[in-house]
Computed example of a mutant assay.
Amino acid sequence: MQRLITRVLILCFISQCLCDISMVESENTIYDVRNYGANGNGKSDDSNAFMDAWNDICGRQGTPTLLIPENRVFLVKRNIIMKGPCKATNINIQLQGRIVAPQKNAWEGDKSTMIYFTNINGLRIVGKGGSIDGFGSSWWPCKNCPRPAVIGFNACNDLSVSYLSITNSPQAHITINGCKDAIFSHVSIRSPADSPNTDGIDISSSKNIFIKDSNIASGDDCIAIIGDSSYINATGIACGPGHGISIGSLGRNNDNVEQVRVYNSSFTKTTNGARIKTFSGGSGYARRITFEKITLNQVYNPIIIDQHYNNIMVTFRGFRGTSANDRAIDLACGSPGCFNILLDEIKIVSSQPGKPASCSCTNVHGRSTSTIPNCNY
């Protein structure tokens, strides 16, 4: 009898172990979009397949992975909305193939965002080997027409995006709104200098966002930070062409931006380098903003403040390189003035040999030390 009980207990233990192993396997399974009807031939619309795959994965437990396989081209004609909250603890997306949008006349979705992630925690996107092409050239001729962004993240916390490559967005390439604790690394964004309003990365109402080791070429701001955003860190950014890295525009909705650091980054043939811009009559603040260790190559406005309210604290430190404009530093503050502006260890010369570079200051209060060109305020 004792032997029988022992055997039964052993069988139950083994059965339970096998069940647990089976559950782990099912929870951590890789889900290929082709199994949901995606053809990946670049001709037929794969939008529904992406949506079906997401809806299935979001309902799974554990850490499922959505695979967009290599050597395939997935055409999406409608908005893909990947919505949470999900049962999964984390969700991985491996983008190994290409996702492409059609030309403007063949786009069947709305003009918001082509691929939209919302209300998801623990999302991990790795784009090694893959890419997204927004076919923006068919949208750009109509500069004032509504145009979609390529990819957007809304209310996504604990987010990681790496090795993502996006080209030719109709409008902004990446938008980040209402997110917390996100890391973007080794991101590549490429659009022509004359592509209208094609911001690289737009950040609004977000906190603890880290962008590092990325290349951004666009027709507008490489990175723009607006809304109630704080603790934003951009390190190792190669910007150009584009309009530089901007805090703003601010002030339209009582915007507050603070604790922003742009470090060890470069601007090449951009319209602006480090920029603070606000609306006239606006309210809010931009404080504890630091641009440090910046390399400039033929930048038209290397350091520029165009602002109209006085609650501002900005440090520009360790700038080196050339200005394509006679006015290398332009600090233009409204009548209330702007305070706590620090220029330190700066050497900017004209990109044209023998031509002087100058500094212009209006209603500016702060300190300027070891700065070429000299700024008196």
Rank of each mutant, 00 (worst) to 15 (best):
I68Y: 03
I68M: 03
I68S: 01
I68H: 00
E70P: 03
N71T: 12
N71M: 14
R72I: 13
R72C: 11
R72W: 10
V73W: 06
V73N: 09
V73E: 11
F74T: 02
F74C: 03
F74Y: 10
L75N: 03
V76N: 04
K77Q: 14
R78D: 10
N79E: 07
I80D: 02
I81M: 12
I81K: 13
I81L: 11
M82W: 10
M82G: 03
K83P: 01
G84D: 04
G84R: 03
A88S: 06
N90M: 15
I91G: 00
I91R: 00
N92K: 08
I93S: 01
I93W: 04
Q94C: 05
L95A: 01
Q96W: 10
Q96R: 13
G97T: 04
R98E: 10
R98D: 10
R98C: 07
R98G: 06
I99K: 02
I99R: 02
A101L: 15
P102M: 11
Q103M: 14
Q103F: 13
Q103G: 12
K104F: 08
W107G: 00
G109F: 09
D110P: 02
D110R: 07
K111Q: 14
K111F: 12
M114V: 08
M114E: 04
I115W: 07
Y116W: 14
Y116F: 15
T118S: 14
N119A: 12
I120H: 00
N121R: 08
N121E: 10
N121Y: 09
G122V: 05
I125P: 00
G127E: 03
K128F: 12
G129T: 06
G130M: 04
S131N: 06
I132P: 02
D133I: 12
D133Y: 11
D133F: 11
D133T: 11
F135K: 15
G136R: 04
G136A: 05
S138D: 05
S138T: 12
W140V: 03
W140Q: 03
P141G: 05
C142L: 15
C142F: 14
C142Y: 13
N144S: 15
N144E: 14
N144Y: 14
N144K: 14
C145E: 13
C145K: 07
R147L: 04
R147W: 05
A149G: 10
V150G: 02
I151E: 02
G152F: 06
G152K: 04
G152H: 05
F153R: 00
A155C: 08
N157M: 08
N157T: 10
N157Y: 12
D158A: 09
S160D: 08
S160T: 15
V161L: 04
V161A: 01
